[in-house]
Design a protein around this nucleic acid. Structure first.
Lengths: 194, 194
DNA sequence: CTCTTAAGGTACGGCGTGTACCCTATGAGA
DNA sequence: TCTCATAGGGTACACGCCGTACCTTAAGAG
């Protein structure tokens, strides 16, 4: 330990350590002591940068996330929607998604943290992608223009999240995704005609 | 303290104490020590009955819940749906709902607890009420028979829960409820015709 | 070369969960 | 009526974690 890290170097080391802890133990299992130890520093350095454990957790989560997949384009609205749901399901059911859910659970009481989460977790990006997808379908004449409504766009993802919330875990079976698309999303889009 | 409580007496005392703690401090603030003190007993008696704090929390929550309102019957599907959402919004935004949300957050990782919660929290009852409501609309000729689908029935409540999950707070404004009904639920019901 | 700033080291206070141990009232059954 | 297994009461404690305080020491700007 000849040299002593400072500023950004140290900050990155802490974030990486926290991210690894998140990956290994989830948010509830991420302790400040272990993060400090893993980063080869001490809690002072952490608390000088982040006020809470939660703040560090969110910041570290961001360190993991960098998805930014391209929009699906299967040619049909049904195909695109299913693809989106399947991708989301994969993400949410990965250990990675478990972390996100842990964070969400911890933030559930704290509006301030919740908005932080929304920004970082790409939920808004997701909604925009759905809207764009619907607009492509409208352009193809596959859906009525009234279908391009934010709440319609957000519905399938909300339903998927609902599955996680009530079932609780590993992964939502594909039939459910199909059901969400065929029994809710597509009828909804059609029902908005005229 | 001439007499010493046993069995059901003591159990009720503990549950009542836990329920009061829940009401006053929410689930995160309900500590075993305080519950024991409030019940005039000690943690032994509690841990002999419930394995976790979470288990006690869920059991105590049940002690608070006894709603069972009659179904709304406004004469129109739109009116009934709005009424259901408004009632749910009231419940969920009450301190009482905050408790429920705290419990849900704590149980989010544990499927076992989640099923316990579902049974106790009346979510299934709620879904049945929605289905019955839709079936009345079908009988009136107000909705197509295909609309009486469990997933359709569950959609509005899931969307409302989604609002709580992302916004995080006090109460969902009425416009949002109206939007859920007019922009999603009713188009969905109509879109399932034919 | 000095001096402010930030890192390292370490020790705590406080709180909460779950367990251990030992004492004592209760009530069922002989 | 007496005995005795059972369950409640009291208390202490190990353990883990968060967040803070305090002091020492390196780094690097001026």
């Amino acid at each position: 330990m000849t040299t002593r890290r400072r500023g950004k170097d140290l900050e990155d080391a802490i974030l990486s350590a926290a991210a690894e802890e998140l990956r290994e133990s989830g948010y509830p299992g991420m302790t400040m002591d272990r993060v400090a130890a893993r980063a080869g520093t001490n809690k002072n350095a952490i608390y000088r940068r982040w006020p809470h454990r939660a703040a560090l957790g969110i910041a570290a989560y961001r360190h993991l996330a960098d998805a930014a997949m391209p929009d699906p384009d299967t040619g049909t609205l049904r195909g695109d929607a299913l693809e989106m749901l399947r991708r989301a399901n994969e993400t949410w059911s990965s250990p990675f998604g478990a972390i996100l859910r842990g964070l969400l659970a911890a933030a559930a009481d704290d509006p301030e943290l919740l908005t932080l989460m929304r920004e970082r977790s790409g939920a808004d990006t997701m909604d925009r992608a759905w809207l764009a997808m619907i607009q492509r379908a409208v352009a193809r004449g596959e859906a009525p223009g009234e279908a391009a409504h934010p709440r319609v766009a957000a519905t399938p993802m909300t339903l998927l999240r609902g599955e996680y919330a009530t079932r609780g875990i590993p992964s939502v079976p594909d039939e459910i995704l199909v059901e969400i698309v065929d029994e809710v999303f597509l009828p909804l889009v059609r029902g908005r005609a005229g």
